[in-house]
Design a protein around this nucleic acid. Sequence first.
DNA 1: ATTATCTTTGCAACTTAGTTGCAATATTTT
DNA 2: AAAATATTGCAACTAAGTTGCAAAGATAAT
Lengths: 143, 143
Amino acid sequence: MTHLESTSLDLLKLHGLRKTPCRLAVLELFFRERAALSHQNIEQQTQNSNFDRVTIYRTLTTFEEKGILHRVPDLEGQAKYALCSEKCSEHAHHDAHVHFKCQTCEKVLCMEDIPLPETAAPKGYQVKTASFLLEGLCAECNG
Amino acid sequence: MTHLESTSLDLLKLHGLRKTPCRLAVLELFFRERAALSHQNIEQQTQNSNFDRVTIYRTLTTFEEKGILHRVPDLEGQAKYALCSEKCSEHAHHDAHVHFKCQTCEKVLCMEDIPLPETAAPKGYQVKTASFLLEGLCAECNG
DNA sequence: ATTATCTTTGCAACTTAGTTGCAATATTTT
DNA sequence: AAAATATTGCAACTAAGTTGCAAAGATAAT
């Protein structure tokens, strides 16, 4: 059993989810890629396993509910997901970091180290969550 | 001719677009609502005029290209658009302001007065555009 | 190890969002 | 008023996402 396999298995157990081929494959993919992935990305990169489209949709939804994945802001295109930090749980997501989308390779990355800037909303408004998406060229594509 | 009608007309002329019922209706709707609108919103609020879905899609695309509307960030749901400031043009959008989505009434507003916070990207990265979406309660729903 | 229980999957069918090609129509220019 | 050009409406399509349900799979209890 590889390292990723055991990490993935632990994560499922931790959240009371059953170990299934689709869930393991999706988790391992996220660990390997270290970038935000869309349903389509996942379907393509797990083609040989032939998981049903619906199963992948449900896997993503379940993982988001349990605090394993968070939705990543992306103006165009489909919903994208990325691995949560350990702080996330069934009860709340703590994904208050900046996200970066490369306009060349289209990868979307979590910049866990860059916290969201503080912003004052006008009076009367109550801010509960915020998302900040930068777009440009990533280190590789900029080189 | 009402004020909105003449403003809408001017805007079309300014961008070399022909005056058509759908375009006028969509522009007037945006002037009245002063909030971001999705294709669906527009379809519903112009029901009696019975514009074709496709025409509305194309109207939105044209307006975005000409710098009359800009796309507004919204994590869930469909694409939303809002009126651009005068600075926008065919060549570039200047929508570098914060957007706010109310979790109760679902309205998305442009906060033209709140500029985007400066954020340093990690070295190697080149930032070209950014979008910042706050979510919470708007002044009305918070009251 | 077998059975019972509960979860997850795969399928089919559906909804909603958005796109494309093209002929008919409307708008502007001359 | 006719010619030139832009825009619309229709039909048909793609892509994203959802729902219900029976069959298969995973875990827990015996």
